[in-house]
Design a binder for these strands. Structure first.
Lengths: 263, 263
DNA sequence: ACCATAAGGGAACTGAGTGCCGCATGGAAG
DNA sequence: CTTCCATGCGGCACTCAGTTCCCTTATGGT
């Protein structure tokens, strides 16, 4: 999570696809005013008449632009609901590409998921409005699946590189990526359902820790540098009475007595 | 997996959605000839001109039926590529609903995934043709996502019921469902990529065992009915030499010697 | 013979998405 | 200042997916 805080120069400028025409002077931070106007008009009409009840002509009519311009900025009507999706994917892939080979791959993809979370949390109002929309419009739900799929593919591709040496590296990469995305989405959705009031980051951290504990190579809840020296394993016959099991566990954890410590 | 073999009366008759009109006499096993003709014509044209290069008029022209009839059987053009999807989802939900509370939930959803696999493996030729199609047509890839999403939701909903007592039950359900689907799809896709020649079931079993080992409540590789009487736990100091660890493991498994058996 | 039901066929319509062309702006070169 | 080119925008027309409405036909029961 430390990797996510205050990364000054890590922002991908603007070379993303589906960005539409770059307007005016070839500077760095220009404002696609027409694009924002289209998004604003679209969400206003979607709130009034619903997604299916709104035509592209309605949107461009309210925004005061030509119909052809809409499809210059958004390849499809559904894309106006996820305006900066391409930039987010580009940011995530850049973040993963900047990963070193030393750190834990699972940690890295969890941090990448936190990156996506931050993009949602930065605009709570917009995220909640979009969530209510996608929840009840089947076409938008389907579109959201391909949005999420892009993130999952980015995570899985990164993990496949990192797990290239493992025997089941590709399988593990796909499974871990799916688990991370599922955990992230679980926490994100419950936050969106609450209207954006709860503490997202804590819930997402807990959810990601859940899969990290199951799939990371650093098994404990600790980071590699704080990992304890000992690994504890307990053997017990199932028919043994509970108090005997407990006593043996305690003894084994002490490292003395009749436990199974080999050292 | 025993639950998957030979379930004579478990087949969901025909009340699925998107099934189109039920034809002719009200018997049990009638054949929607027109539906099959549409699928056949569609795949033939898709192979020749591609999905985007084929219009619905082309399909109905080759099948010799009216254009309106196509949309009676398939709500959208993409649905002709997944003709029995609704029946598969209905089968899976029925299979999950028939689950007892005794067996391992993870085992159950893994078996449900194997059920889907069997539907693919029953028609290898069709599955491979569809795979090659969906691989290169973005619109079909997106549609496949919503197909897979239905399966994942079915698994997750079942797990949510089974994990209702757990503190993080809903999170665990979502993560396990995603992991199972990812593992299943990983093995399925590699089989489809091979043209349907490899042994699917073995690969899928291995992939599902991968997530079962991580998330099932019965940690070993054993089924509940063949579970051994003993539970083995091993304690080892990390700095111990490997041979000492191995020797202690062997001793512990023997139940004799200086191991940690409490009985 | 009559009607009821259900399936197929077909014309016409809406709306998304695309191709093409013309217009305007704005900066650079003559 | 004019010419030229590049770029963004608007508009028209077109294709095609999907829907609505209505008609025809077959079958089966009374």
């Amino acid at each position: 999570m430390e990797a996510l805080s205050h990364r000054p120069g890590c922002y991908v400028p603007r070379m993303s696809a589906s960005q539409g025409p770059r307007s005016g002077a070839g500077g760095t931070a220009d404002k696609p005013a027409m694009r924002d106007a289209l998004v604003e008009a679209a969400f206003q009409l979607f709130a009034e008449r619903g997604f299916d009840g709104t035509t592209v002509d309605d949107i461009v009519g309210l925004a005061g632009v030509g119909r052809r311009s809409f499809f210059r900025y958004f390849p499809a009507k559904e894309d106006v609901v996820f305006p900066d999706h391409e930039r987010c994917v580009a940011d995530m892939t850049a973040f993963l590409r900047a990963s070193g080979d030393a750190d834990d791959p699972v940690e890295r993809v969890c941090d990448a998921a936190r990156l996506v979370l931050r993009m949602y949390a930065d605009n709570p109002g917009f995220s909640v409005r979009r969530y209510r929309l996608t929840k009840q419009v089947p076409g938008l739900r389907a579109h959201e699946l391909s949005v999420v799929w892009r993130y999952e593919r980015a995570l899985a591709d990164h993990l496949r590189q990192r797990y290239a040496a493992r025997p089941d590296g590709r399988l593990r990469a796909d499974v871990v990526a799916a688990a991370v995305v599922a955990a992230h989405n679980h926490a994100l959705r419950s936050w969106l359902r609450s209207g954006g009031r709860d503490d997202v980051t804590a819930d997402v951290d807990a959810a990601l820790e859940y899969v990290r504990a199951a799939w990371s190579d650093t098994p404990g809840g600790e980071r590699p540098d704080t990992e304890p020296e000992d690994v504890v394993v307990i053997v017990s016959r199932r028919s043994a009475p509970l108090w005997k099991v407990v006593r043996s566990v305690e003894t084994a954890l002490d490292g003395t007595g009749p436990g199974a410590s080999t050292d």
